Simulated scan of single mutants.
Amino acid sequence: MVEKAGLRERKKQRTRQALIEAAVLLFEDRGYDRVTVAEIAAAAEVSPRTFFLHFQTKEDVLLANADVRVDLALEVIGERRAGERLPEVLVRAMEQMIFNAWDRDLSSGLAALRARLAASEPALQARLLQRYLTAQAELSEALRREFPDRLDVTTAPALVGAMVGAVGAAAVGALRRGEGPDEVRNAMRTAMALVARAVP
């Protein structure tokens, strides 16, 4: 029974990845606006119904690993090590978000495509903003619970916003310059260290 469940999950992940890869290729080749959900499904050799089991909209394909990244960061915050200081927890949470989940986005071309499209597609801009705000609220609340003597309802969101904003801006800048995955990671690390040094 466990083996069947594991096989089913692996098949689900393969289908999800095939949809992401098909979408990236189609968006790159034909432009975001000219690609339909049905075409993405066909390129991945699944039905449109299967597409909608994995993603609500084609914008969501571009945010495929966002929830995974947030969950990884929340796990780090919730499992704070004894004596670990606020800047250390924040950096470790961001490391998990960036380097455990972003690597897939960087290697698949999804991160670069998302950065380009976010500058020109209003529907994607709105979806990205909604996702960023939700993620920042979740991370802020988790940090505030772990550091109630250091953070309140104003300082926690401000700190998370500074970190997420700095890292995101550094990544987008590197991607727009056409830099490779290593350079993008280094830019993100530099931004992360800059914010962490400002946290007492």
Rank of each mutant, 00 (worst) to 15 (best):
T57K: 08
T57Q: 11
K58Y: 13
E59L: 08
E59I: 03
E59S: 15
E59N: 15
D60H: 14
V61D: 11
V61T: 12
V61H: 06
V61C: 13
L63G: 04
L63A: 09
L63E: 09
L63Q: 02
A64E: 09
A64K: 04
A66T: 01
A66M: 01
D67A: 07
R69H: 05
D71I: 07
L72T: 09
L72D: 12
L72E: 10
A73M: 15
E75Y: 14
E75V: 06
I77Q: 11
I77G: 13
G78V: 06
R80S: 07
A82R: 11
A82I: 13
G83N: 12
E84F: 12
L86T: 00
L86R: 05
L86I: 10
L86D: 02
P87Y: 12
P87H: 13
P87K: 10
P87M: 12
E88Q: 14
V89T: 15
V89A: 11
V91F: 09
A93R: 03
M94Y: 06
E95T: 06
M97P: 00
M97G: 07
I98M: 14
I98K: 03
F99Q: 03
F99A: 06
F99G: 01
N100W: 14
A101N: 08
A101D: 06
W102V: 01
D103M: 10
R104H: 09
R104D: 13
G109F: 12
G109R: 11
A111Y: 06
A115R: 09
A115N: 07
A115H: 02
A115W: 05
R116N: 10
A118T: 00
A118E: 00
A119H: 11
A119M: 12
E121R: 12
E121Q: 15
P122D: 02
P122R: 01
A123G: 10
A123N: 06
Q125W: 01
A126F: 06
A126R: 07
A126W: 00
R127G: 01
R127P: 02
L128V: 10
L128C: 08
L128N: 14
L129D: 03
L129I: 09
Q130Y: 02
R131E: 01
R131S: 01
Y132F: 13
Y132T: 03
L133S: 04
L133A: 03
L133I: 05
A137I: 04
S140D: 06
E141L: 11
A142M: 09
A142C: 05
L143F: 05
L143Y: 00
R145F: 03
E146T: 06
E146Q: 15
F147W: 08
F147N: 11
P148C: 08
D149P: 05
R150P: 05
R150H: 13
R150K: 11
D152T: 08
V153R: 08
V153H: 10
T154P: 02
T155A: 08
T155C: 00
T155M: 01
A156F: 10
A156Q: 02
A156I: 08
A158G: 08
